[in-house]
Design a protein around this nucleic acid. Sequence first.
DNA 1: GCGACAG
DNA 2: ATCTTGTCGC
Length: 225
Amino acid sequence: MFLRYNAPVPDPELIKQLTQQQQEMSRQVRLEKPTFEIKTIAGCDSSFIGENILSVFILFSWPDMQVLEKVWNYEPVELPYLPGFLAFRESPNLIKAYDKLQTKPDLIMVDGHGISHPRRLGIASQLGVLLNKPTMGVAKKILVGKYEQPELTKGTFTPVMHRNEHIANALCTKDNVKPVFVSAGHLVDLEFATEMAIKTAIKHKLPEPTRLADHYAEVFKSEVQ
DNA sequence: GCGACAG
DNA sequence: ATCTTGTCGC
């Protein structure tokens, strides 16, 4: 009763390989203030049914935030969840869902971290490199780093620090609600990611792209099972 | 050495 | 992520 029998035993060789791949991909990550024009934004998320994964992309027009497309892909999942290696479990299927979009987004908001990761390659960053697209992360829980609770007023944020680097912001997106953790993924900077999170958090804790992706991941799930 | 650990 | 009951507030 003190052991977690459901915890997967990580194969050291696998971990070593995945870590190496992360280091290679993290070298390709570029963080910069976007100069391109944004006309569309997408949110993505995944849900699971046993050994299968269902990933969705919801495309929005910007700045009017109308839903333009909803796509998804469903298939068996290869890897178990390993903290720090989430992208290897979810991104293959996310990319297959992404490929079904008629219009490709100018920015992708991912449910998870960007560079606020032990090796600076959370799922938002990895997806950004693999798709060569601007991405940012919006996570509900912190993975690494320390922060002080921001004042619980919408738009207020405090820095998340890790190894003396400002890797994310703990952002209050709704009055009297605990913050979400916003980070740059790829081809954007933290300041831009934070502003977009504030602007798209209309009336809920989660910004609309991530929130609706989360919602439709559940809707489509009930359709396949 | 011990604990923590996105989704 | 998923399993799960009631509960507080807008």
